[in-house]
Design a protein around this nucleic acid. Structure first.
Lengths: 215, 215
DNA sequence: GTTGACACAGAACAAATGTTCGATTATAAT
DNA sequence: ATTATAATCGAACATTTGTTCTGTGTCAAC
């Protein structure tokens, strides 16, 4: 009896996740009951109360569809609900011959990635797809997705998207402040750094993530 | 009047997205009305019907919270609803000294990434975090997230996670079948390939994505 | 054999929720 | 000035939905 109860609770969790992903909203108590062949809403409610006590789900009381999974990722301190994602503005492509169009940040296109992949600071993130091989010296290939945080200054050694006024070129490099000059160090150690006067280097965002698709 | 109507519809879309991300379920007609200061549920319903006609949202009729955004990404042929993600089993870490534990695929931990980042085939995906520098010859660093598709054979040149029986080592390399041998080519061109008998090379999954966090 | 706990069922109820209807107001067109 | 259309409102209604209550059956412990 108890084992069947456990199995049913596991099935509820699976159904809850699948239903929510498939429909864009969680199921109702009656929909869960129909899926599991349980005719009694009080029993479903009883199971959900158990799962809530175990920390497996979270319920908002007395509102419709107020059930959601709690699914911790590998970081113990960063509990995220399954499906809890960051919605990041997607600005199109990044090419070498133009500065980033960060004015498009309020556009409608976004990309969703699991929140747990990010650190604490989720402000001012935006995403672009790399077009062409001009970022290869950053070990970033054509088609990679790059996620940046909009900031005009980075710490020494951090990778940033920089617009080089003199060259009329956007590039992704590690930035080192050296007096009145900035050294832009390719991630590929076989390549030479670029030196430019600090006022000709416009930092447009710090690279916080690269997503490479291989096929 | 018409302009206010347009503005209100835009605000509804923004609220719908934000509310759904924040709560795990969409808002009701009345919650939308409260947010916009509209006291009449029939007007909210009217607006939602307009948005549905424009293809901006999708509604499931006569059920609670049956509203979701339609938000195409950059691929015109792959329409995905905002927040529509792929839930991929997360198996922990990949280390050099052990084969991948793909038996854990039915475990509970998952990671969600925007569906549009993937190709058509979503079967048998799983994710691991790289631990240590042993994959550096694949240009994959400690802490990177690697997403693989569970398959025992790859096309020539594709990158795979392989378990080398002779060396008792998991490695990520491009795989080339050469007669009775397999050549395992590091992604880093400065490094030498490994040659091994085909029966000592167990392919455990094809690498389809790498996610690198830079801070 | 008795008792208590647990799982389960059905019904009832209250609240939440979506839809429809008739009416009013504002605006644009004639 | 009149008419038509669009936007808006409030009320009512039907349905959906979550919760509570009472009762029954099963099983384990005593």
């Amino acid at each position: 009896m108890k084992q069947q109860s456990q199995e049913r609770q596991e099935r509820i969790l699976q159904f809850l996740g699948a239903f929510t992903r498939e429909n864009g909203y969680p199921p109702t108590v009656r929909e869960i009951g129909r899926e599991l062949g349980i005719e009694s809403t009080s029993l479903v409610s009883f199971y959900l109360t158990q799962l809530e006590k175990q920390g497996r789900i979270r319920r908002d009381p007395a509102i419709s569809r107020g059930i959601r999974l709690v699914s911790p990722w590998t970081l113990p301190e960063a509990h995220t609900a399954q499906g809890e994602v960051v919605s990041i503005p997607y600005l199109g492509t990044i090419v070498a011959g133009a500065p980033l169009n960060v004015e498009a940040l309020s556009g409608e296109e976004t990309i969703e990635i699991n929140r747990a992949l990010f650190g604490r600071n989720l402000d001012a993130l935006f995403a672009l797809t790399v077009k062409g091989d001009s970022m290869i010296d950053a070990l970033i290939h054509d088609g990679d997705l790059v996620i940046l945080r909009q900031q005009e200054r980075v710490e020494n050694g951090e990778m940033a998207a920089v617009w080089l006024v003199g060259r009329e070129e956007t590039t992704l490099k590690r930035v080192y402040y050296e007096g009145r000059q900035i050294r832009l160090q390719p991630a590929n150690p076989t390549m030479e750094p670029i030196y430019a006067p600090a006022d000709e280097v416009h930092i447009q965002g710090k690279v916080v993530m690269v997503v490479r698709r291989l096929s």
